[in-house]
Design a protein around this nucleic acid. Structure first.
Lengths: 201, 201
DNA sequence: ACATGTTTCGACCAAAAAAGTCGACAAAAA
DNA sequence: TTTTTGTCGACTTTTTTGGTCGAAACATGT
């Protein structure tokens, strides 16, 4: 087979099993300190079995990060597709975003590592996520502008500005993984300031 | 200097600093996955500086385990030296023992690793701990026998039997590090059974 | 029963990582 | 100024790890 790995229904099962096991180990020890032997032992298999399903270690890690990004956007889509008004949606979007990223230890570590060169696959993944996030933010801002909750002249540009600000909020998550409640209070404060500037008066 | 390492007041400071930093890293990653570079970076020093204070990596780990054993027995001594009656002391001793061992992640890991060959220094440390524990249990049992709370014919032998039973209780700690509250309920149940057999009727 | 496809893994190799050493240097103390 | 203490970059040696390969076991099809 030419650089493709078994992905029929049967083997998706084993691939997903490997990804789940790897995910826990990467979360606990990090990418570097987790060995292929660790992952294999967690599955009670030989190390070389992993290479039947994945090309290499980084590909397993990529699959873990893709899964975690998928989880993140699944949650964000639920927020955007809810029946709430635009203001509530935006608030919920930001809180859900930061909270979920905080929980997805591997995704968070990958974001952090990316600042120092990170992984080959991560650039593409990040770009894809940024585009998806822009779409979601545009959707919320357009809803708010349509019903006059928000006063935004250039929605796409505002969405980009928002997304950039959200990235800045990621930095505190790199340092402290404990007091998210404190961080949440901070987010609420920032939201109030943001809304004061956005809500029509 | 001939195989001794600086241990004057000044350098005990640096040794203890190294031990504390190492302790956190060993607890988080385990002995094997923690590198000398990790420890050095945590202290913002060069890796070879560590070899000024310690002979090798295992000696650092030994110092960590000695410190944790010292913490354990310090707590146990407080229990035995309290003014409580023998029955309360025995109960408190067992709970404090299991709870503290549960908290001392490195000591617990060393106990676990010891079953698989473990570390060169650990045998001596364990023997020393067993002797000290026997003394403490004898003290409690003698107090209880003297005031007729317990009915024990051969106190030293009973102490050894107790210590052996306590070791058996360590095994559940190896597997689950989460629900200690459940484990504590189990301990209470076992204590009641033990007391029924011990308390004079 | 045999052939084919799928999955597993022990042995191995090359590369990378890590433990540990050494000599030079800086800083502190005498 | 000399001696002692402490630091660390460069290096060596040892160990670990990622990854490969061929053989074997297992499952499936004919």
């Amino acid at each position: 087979m030419t650089d493709t790995y078994p992905s029929g229904a049967q083997n998706d099962g084993m691939r997903n099993t490997i990804i789940e096991a790897a995910r826990e180990l990467f979360a606990k020890f990090g990418y570097k300190k987790t060995t292929m032997e660790d992952i294999a032992q967690a599955l009670r298999k030989g190390k070389s079995s992993l290479y039947y399903y994945f090309k290499n270690k980084e590909e397993i890690f990529q699959a873990v990060i893709e899964m975690e990004e998928e989880l993140l956007f699944s949650k964000l889509h639920k927020v955007v597709d809810s029946e709430n008004d635009a203001k509530s949606k935006l608030r919920e979007y930001i809180i859900t975003r930061m909270e979920t990223i905080h929980q997805l230890e591997n995704y968070l570590k990958a974001l952090k590592d990316d600042m120092l060169g990170g992984y080959e696959f991560f650039g593409r993944l990040k770009t894809k996520g940024e585009k998806e996030e822009a779409k979601l933010l545009i959707q919320i801002l357009e809803e708010g502008t349509a019903d006059n909750t928000f006063q935004v002249k250039n929605v796409p540009m505002a969405a980009v500005a928002f997304a950039t600000a959200l990235k800045g909020l990621e930095v505190p998550l790199f340092k402290s993984q404990n007091n998210f409640d404190d961080f949440k209070v901070q987010i609420e404060n920032i939201l109030n300031i943001l809304f004061y500037g956005l809500i029509k008066r």
